[in-house]
Simulated scan of single mutants.
Amino acid sequence: MQIQINDMLRAYIEPLTEAEHEALERSLLAEGCRDALVLWGDVLVDGHNRYAICQQHGIPFKVVQNERFQSMEDVMLWMIDNHLGRRSVSDFQRGVLALRKKDILAKRIEEDAARIKAEDAAITPPDSDIDAAAVPKVRTSREDIARAARLSSNTISQIEKIQKTATPELVEAVRTGTISINAAATVATLPAEEQVNAVAGGKKSLQQAAKEVREQRAASRPVKPAKPAPWEDGGEPPSQPDQPLTEVEHLRAEVAELKAKNAALRAENAELRERIDQLVDAS
């Protein structure tokens, strides 16, 4: 059989890094190709890297047919589930795969609903409602997708943001682990040119860019009014010192005040983050 390579399927899963490819090549040369390649007809579904290495070095391999595939979408869903179960897949890759699965399932729901509506229209008035029980129940909520990827709903939201607004350079940086998902989602809010410049500057530049965005957000939030001093509510004001404060004492007082404001801002920031997570989970 002449095995066919579908370029879309070959590119559907994130490629191996150079180190991963070298490790796989060493393993195949030392132990042979122990796992069979998965085919759909004559199309290669799983084992593109193993197939290429085996062809290069003349290593024998086995193939197995998957008879359950009915469409290209079935193939893609199988590939996604197969990779989600692997330990070597990073959090970002798992999130991307889970979101791809969500898109495929959501599309199927729409197609099934349209098909049922068309079938009903042939025997019932056009204005009648679609039988909800007839539409397959498929879990596509953010919580379900997060559970499938073994990630939090907040992380899934951050990956969605990265996919929508991040430049290819920033996506590659988070894919290779140069920057965390959380920080990448923050940097992705910057204009494209600034994202590219941050990536070009390396890991420290990316971290600094994320820090500056967070600081700007914190500075733009309104500060809660300070609680009135006891004497402003009718109490007795503190006794005034006989001697004016020295410069050192003034500075110490300012430092103490700034520390108090900083603590209040941190508490407010934590509260807002918790509220955001709750809103995201509820959406």
Rank of each mutant, 00 (worst) to 15 (best):
K102I: 04
N66S: 01
P60L: 02
R50N: 07
L105K: 10
D103R: 14
R87Q: 06
V89F: 15
I104N: 14
L97H: 12
A52G: 04
F92M: 01
R50L: 10
I59H: 09
S88G: 02
Q56K: 11
V89L: 13
L77M: 04
L77A: 14
L77Y: 05
G95H: 14
L97M: 08
G95W: 11
Q93N: 09
I59T: 13
F92I: 05
R94F: 15
N82F: 10
M72R: 12
V45A: 04
G58I: 15
Q56Y: 04
E73D: 07
P60G: 01
F69L: 00
H57K: 06
M72T: 13
L44Q: 05
N49R: 06
N49P: 02
Q65F: 13
M79H: 07
I59K: 02
P60M: 06
G85V: 02
A106E: 13
L99A: 12
S90C: 14
L44R: 03
D42K: 12
Q93K: 11
I104Y: 10
K102F: 00
R86G: 00
S88H: 10
Y51R: 03
D103I: 15
Q56D: 03
H83V: 14
Q70Y: 07
K102G: 05
C54T: 09
K62F: 02
F69H: 11
F69G: 01
D46I: 15
A52L: 09
A106D: 14
L99P: 12
L97R: 09
G85Q: 01
F69P: 01
V43F: 09
Q70I: 11
M72P: 13
C54D: 04
S90N: 03
K107S: 14
S71T: 13
E67L: 13
I104Q: 06
G47P: 10
Y51G: 04
D91K: 06
R68V: 08
N49G: 01
S90W: 15
G85F: 00
N66L: 00
G58T: 12
D103N: 07
K102S: 09
R50P: 10
I80M: 10
R86L: 09
Q93A: 11
R87C: 03
V64P: 01
D74K: 13
S90P: 11
H83N: 08
F69E: 00
A98W: 11
L99R: 10
S71D: 03
V64K: 07
M72N: 10
